[in-house]
Amino acid sequence: MMNLAQQLQEQAKKLLEEKKVDLVIGFGQGTELARNTPVFIDSPEGVSALTWGPFCANNLAKYLSDYNNAPGGTAVVVKGCDARSVNRLLDDNQILREKVVVIGVPCPGQLEWQKVSAEIKPGSTLKEVVDNGDSYTVKTDSGDYSFSKKDYLLHRCLVCENPNPVISDITIGKELPVKNYEERFAEVQDLEKLAVNEKSAYWDKQFTRCLRCYACRNVCSVCTCEVCVFDQMMPMWVSKRTNLSENTAFHITRAFHVAGRCVDCGECDRVCPMDIPLRKLNVKIHKDLGDLFNSPTPGTEPGLISPLGGFSPGDPEEFM
């Protein structure tokens, strides 16, 4: 039986050979054993670079809008969370359905590469990764290493809502059960319990560290503005100077701008070089959207109207 990577390669090859797409965006081996990297394959001979495993953290749907104006179609490899991005991009008219082929892979969780890397002998070569349910065994030429999912998965994966892609033209692998999704608000609930000044102190501490590298914004699949307000010089809404006030203005504006559109892929949180727990801001907004508007996570189904992006004459206007 073929492993998932081989199945992926075969499907990608077929799509390219039959000219259904000109490009396949997938994951390839990165420069660290426990790291994969986006690869862009434009010929059937190139598909051997495609891989799959628990080191595929990136949300590749982000790249789809780069190829809107390409003459041919684009295929993209997505996990469950990334598939929500595809729905969201379609709803925002950022991509054309007929130009995109979604290759969905049910995902049993992505590992934090640095934590894994720290345990493996430097310079080792990856042979195979085995999913044991509650843990992964990473087999290398320097021996086998075991990583419990509880301790080594990205936090977003521990409370995953959609291990199975919510939109998919070609699905590779078996459907997986949803686990621990009910615990998704635990962290936020802990924060909610704090007094206002304690919450403020918590976020002040986080935002003070911000370098304003804008990785959180740039990696975000629903950040699609052609010119971002933070890049405008005239007027300069937020100064280039970093300080708590400017940094807070950036983060709060960013969180609100994606409210109702954020698909909770957790990429902002993963890429932050200063470990600012950005996902907590978004999850709090998701919780409120659920509580106030009974709204599901954006992107979980196509055509969802965001509570903050829709208009209904029947809306109550309690605040007026």
Binding site: P38, F40, L211, C213, Y214, R217, N218, K240
Partner: peptide, 24 residues
């Protein structure tokens, strides 16, 4: 193709030294 145009590499780099000047 994969670069997301963020500033991480330059800000964490110990030798990158580009700066901007503006009036506040």
């Amino acid at each position: 193709k994969k670069c997301i145009s963020c500033g991480i590499c330059t800000y964490v780099c110990p030798t990158c030294h580009c700066f901007d000047i503006f009036d506040y």
